[in-house]
């Protein structure tokens, strides 16, 4: 990276460190940091959408819809994350490929399962076998987002379901007595008031989600924990210009600080948000705010 990095063996101290920390391999760990942040940025809203759909269908008056919502919450919450991640992504990928296979290659005669092999016709591969590597990586990333969204959506659904029931019932009855129909009551009275009840649960989920990102590696996405382990492992001079001993401790220490800082910032933001949501609500905290202002 820097001009003085031509012969790292002759360097020491800070100069060596500056060169070491800017090798192509270290760029990969910095990139993976953004991968993790991007994953969080996309997963959080999509999990919330999954959760909202799950919760509103679970409390639907139409039984089959309510069963679907409740089954989604119960099944996904009950299965261990790691089993879900290992099984689900491969199954999801194969499901997509199988559907494309049925559409694009209707006259394919060989079996899809040949012994241990899962074989679909080439044009049904997802992504196509000749696609560049970044397409494969992006596809893997979105499979990961989808899986995270489904898993955390189930937990969010449970939180929102509880929050919807926590809104005082007389609020809804009053709305109805004003002549609002069911839809209007839901969108204008229930949804705006439920967030204050949902936020403590949702902020908890957000913290768990931040810490769950190393599960990405199970999905084939190389995240910061993978790179910390790879970079920290001892390196011999034959295969690198920057030989060093077992430095995993330092890399994991850096990760620890990163995650602690990140969750701390999240806490501060969530507290601010809670303050805002509480404003004017018929809750204990809302009442306290009103009194303090008065």
């Amino acid at each position: 990276m820097f001009s003085f990095c031509v012969d790292p063996a002759s360097l020491d101290g800070l100069a060596w460190m500056a060169c070491y920390l800017t090798t192509g391999k270290h760029m990969a760990i910095y990139t993976s940091l953004f991968t993790v942040l991007l994953l969080l940025a996309i997963t959080a809203p999509s999990a919330l959408i999954f959760g909202f759909l799950g919760a509103s269908s679970a409390r639907s008056p139409f039984p089959p819809l309510s069963w679907i919502g409740k089954a989604y919450i119960a099944i996904v919450r009950g299965v261990p994350d790691i089993a879900f991640f290992l099984f689900f992504v491969i199954a999801l990928d194969q499901l997509f490929e199988w559907i494309r296979h049925e559409i694009k290659c209707p006259d394919w005669e060989a079996d899809i399962w040949q012994g241990n092999d899962f074989v679909v016709c080439d044009i049904a591969k997802l992504p196509l076998g000749n696609a560049p590597q970044w397409v494969h990586e992006t596809y893997g990333f979105f499979l990961a987002v989808l899986t995270f969204a489904i898993v955390f959506g189930a937990f969010a659904a449970n939180v929102l379901y509880g929050a919807m029931r926590a809104v005082p019932h007389n609020q809804l009855e009053t709305a109805e007595s004003y002549g609002m129909n069911r839809r209007q009551v839901f969108w204008r009275i229930l949804v705006p008031q439920m967030w204050v009840f949902a936020l403590p649960g949702l902020s908890n989920l957000w913290m768990v989600l931040i810490k769950a990102t190393p599960l990405l590696f199970l999905l084939g996405v190389e995240d910061i924990v993978y790179w910390a382990r790879e970079l920290g492992g001892s390196k011999t001079a034959r295969f690198t210009d920057y030989p060093h001993g077992d430095w995993r401790m330092w890399y994991f220490l850096a990760l620890l600080i990163f995650y602690l800082l990140f969750t701390r910032v999240s806490e501060i933001v969530l507290d601010k948000l809670m303050l805002k949501l509480t404003h004017g609500q018929a809750t204990l905290a809302g009442e306290a705010q009103r009194k303090a202002a008065a």
Partner: peptide, 21 residues
């Protein structure tokens, strides 16, 4: 048309990730 070669990248001298990543 493209053959994807899977490797581990952590077993020198057979295969490893070099300084350039």
């Amino acid at each position: 048309s493209v053959v994807r070669m899977g490797t581990e990248g952590a077993y020198p001298p057979y295969n490893f990730i070099n300084d350039a990543g």
